[in-house]
């Protein structure tokens, strides 16, 4: 169906008519609510993926289990399909979030001389674009390094996946990079999870406090889970 054609109402506007910021092809004729909905849905799918990713990665704490799991995963004929699906979801999330962010910036061209908040906005909620872009860069480097084995953090000559992971994370730069990346994910999700429920319309006064708690818990839990692997690698000295 097509959306009703809105009139910018320039005749009624006393001052100069404004440009219509939603006219660009990137908006693909989608309303702001539809774009937000797609960002929320893809975000929800990505959170689901992160839990599965963490569960698989934590197997590294059990000697031998991680490489077995990785071999089984790579043997699956469904893996390329899953990877393409995940990539598509990620692209939708990032692209639409950036399109919305651009429109949001255009909507407020001039900031106030005195910056003040009412205390409701949090650092996480105000910096979703910054933490999101940090995660984007992290994911690109992470895939180049882990999937395509780009020798970024030293060049360990190792055989197995678990050795590659542990030696990387025992490298000071590798540990720092991965710790920073998962912390950015945690901060992003501490607002993102609650936010997606609100955007999908699954929120009310009754659920609000519980959902904000859940959001912070999910952010903290995922960041802590991935950090545990970094700490484990550092303690093991990469072996």
């Amino acid at each position: 169906m097509s959306e009703p054609a809105p009139s910018p109402g320039s005749s009624a506007r006393i001052s100069a008519p404004i440009a219509t910021p939603r006219a660009g092809f990137l908006h693909a004729g989608l309303s702001s609510v539809t774009k937000k909905y797609a960002v929320a849905m893809s975000g929800l799918a990505l959170v689901g993926f992160l839990f599965a990713h963490l569960a698989g990665n934590l197997l590294i704490l059990i000697p031998g289990a991680f490489d077995q799991y990785a071999a089984a995963l790579h043997a699956s004929p469904l893996l390329p399909l899953a990877e393409i699906g995940l990539f598509a979801v990620f692209v939708v999330h990032v692209a639409l979030a950036l399109v919305c962010a651009r429109a949001n910036r255009d909507a407020k061209p001039q900031k106030y001389a005195v910056a003040a908040t009412r205390g409701k906005a949090t650092l996480a909620s105000r910096t979703m674009v910054i933490t999101g872009c940090t995660v984007l860069v992290f994911v690109i480097v992470h895939i180049a390094h882990m999937k395509f084995r780009a020798p970024l953090f030293g060049n360990p000559t190792v055989e197995t996946g678990s050795q590659w992971v542990l030696r990387t994370l025992a490298h000071p730069l590798g540990a720092l990079f991965y710790a920073a990346g998962v912390c950015a994910v945690g901060v992003h999700l501490s607002h993102g999870v609650w936010s997606l429920f609100q955007t999908l319309g699954w929120n009310s006064k009754r659920w609000h406090a519980r959902l904000t708690c859940l959001s912070r818990a999910v952010g903290a839990l995922l960041a802590a889970g991935f950090l545990l692997i970094v700490v484990y690698a550092l303690l093991r000295g990469g072996r």
Binding site: E3, S7, S32, V33, C100, D106, K108, W194, S195
Partner: peptide
Amino acid sequence: VAQMDAEGFGACTNT
């Protein structure tokens, strides 16, 4: 919602 978008308001980021 369509009119709200056409007027040039931004989208909610739930702050």
